[in-house]
Design a protein around this nucleic acid. Structure first.
Lengths: 222, 222
DNA sequence: CTGGAACCGTAACGTACGGTACGGTTGTCG
DNA sequence: CGACAACCGTACCGTACGTTACGGTTCCAG
């Protein structure tokens, strides 16, 4: 059956990374292969790339699925961004904050690794046990929401923003930022997300969001 | 090698559906399997479900990829929607038109078949030859754009809408409508897209879009 | 030095599945 | 009826890959 279940379990249930350096190297190798070849990476390929034995792979990660989830979780843990908390922002700093989040988010979703990870998670979401989709979603869209909502609430308290529900306000912001970028990238289209385009998109999305939910304009469409 | 390349080729290069009823039945069966089981459908399973021989499958569609693309193309050809062209709309009919598009789009992307098709297309986008991604994108997001742009242009000519570029205006609308719905569905999350929620979202997105690009308000954030 | 744990490299096994071959059946045309 | 094409059902083949097994090497602990 299995070999060392406890290691995998304790690793999967908590963000405490009980990973040796060697294992991190292996996950990095798996991640690189995932980016290069997509979901059709083989255990043999990972072992070859990471210069380890297949036996170790199975001992450490249980099976192929375990390796995949460990890889996704490993990458997800790396993109943890520090939240920018602000007590009582003025319009300038709020704008800058929103733009910064928009920029970061666009940078993330247009990165090779994000595309690869989302692809493999989506592939697995179709086939029974998801798990991967939940991890990606949790560390992507939901993490962004939980980091952004305090900013929105602060803006509301400061009288700079007007909205009923932080959740729906966030989703509006999300839509204005992401638009069709992510789905196009996932489907293999290339909407040309250069550094400059990201900068411009972030500014535009922020401007639009403030036009909808900014105070002082009198009209908010919600 | 192959069996009857010409049939597949002529079918794939043109929208002229040279498909017998039998073949359509088979593609429908494949589509149902795709919705149920995801990308891991086997040729044997399709043959069993459609009560045909594997030999016929290979004769008609070449190989597994051919069957998949034929299925995607077949489904895509079914959701062709009639464009609502309008010469010189008033605000009421423009609003109704936008809402209707938003409603349809939300209904499409939250449908089982759309989710399944996008999943398989995304899975394949990772592995070398895309093709599927292009088809899905062409009949999804780009078809929507080409149907919606005339409406936007008409609104602009009628002095109801203000925007520079129809493309970016469309993308804003797209973002306001779709928000995080599609990616969450693809990743196995269920944002609860009931009939009522769709109705409400479409109205909200249209309201927000008009707040950004409607004339008479004086401010458009682009 | 020695025993043993951890690990590498590779070979081997089992199976699932894409693809092919073939005999049997049905339908059609002359 | 006879010839023939289309097609079904099934058996078969080859291979790729997940998983396991095992001998050899390195590296400490005692």
């Amino acid at each position: 059956m299995w070999a060392d279940v406890s290691a995998v379990q304790v690793y999967e249930q908590e963000e405490v990374q009980k990973l040796t350096e060697r294992q991190k190297d292996i996950l990095d190798a798996a991640l690189r292969l995932l980016v290069e070849d997509g979901d059709n990476l083989t255990m043999a390929a990972v072992a070859r790339r990471a210069k380890c034995s297949k036996e170790s792979l199975y001992k450490w990660f249980g099976d192929r699925d375990g390796l995949l989830t460990a890889t996704v979780r490993w990458q997800a843990s790396k993109v943890r961004v520090v939240p920018v908390d602000q007590g009582r922002p003025d319009l300038m700093s709020l704008t800058e904050s929103l733009e910064s989040y928009a920029r970061d988010w666009l940078k993330v979703i247009s990165s090779d690794t994000s595309v690869a990870l989302n692809r493999v998670a989506i592939s697995h979401a179709g086939s029974g046990r998801d798990k991967l989709g939940e991890i990606v979603l949790q560390n992507g869209r939901f993490a962004l929401a939980s980091r952004l909502k305090p900013v929105l609430d602060a803006g509301k308290r400061a009288g700079l923003l007007v909205f009923e529900d932080a959740e729906t306000a966030f989703r509006t912001f999300f839509g204005l930022v992401a638009r069709d970028v992510q789905i196009r990238l996932l489907l293999g289209d290339w909407p040309g997300m250069t550094e400059a385009a990201i900068e411009e998109d972030a500014a535009r999305a922020t401007r639009q969001f403030l036009a909808l939910h900014g105070a002082g304009k009198g009209q908010q469409a919600e």
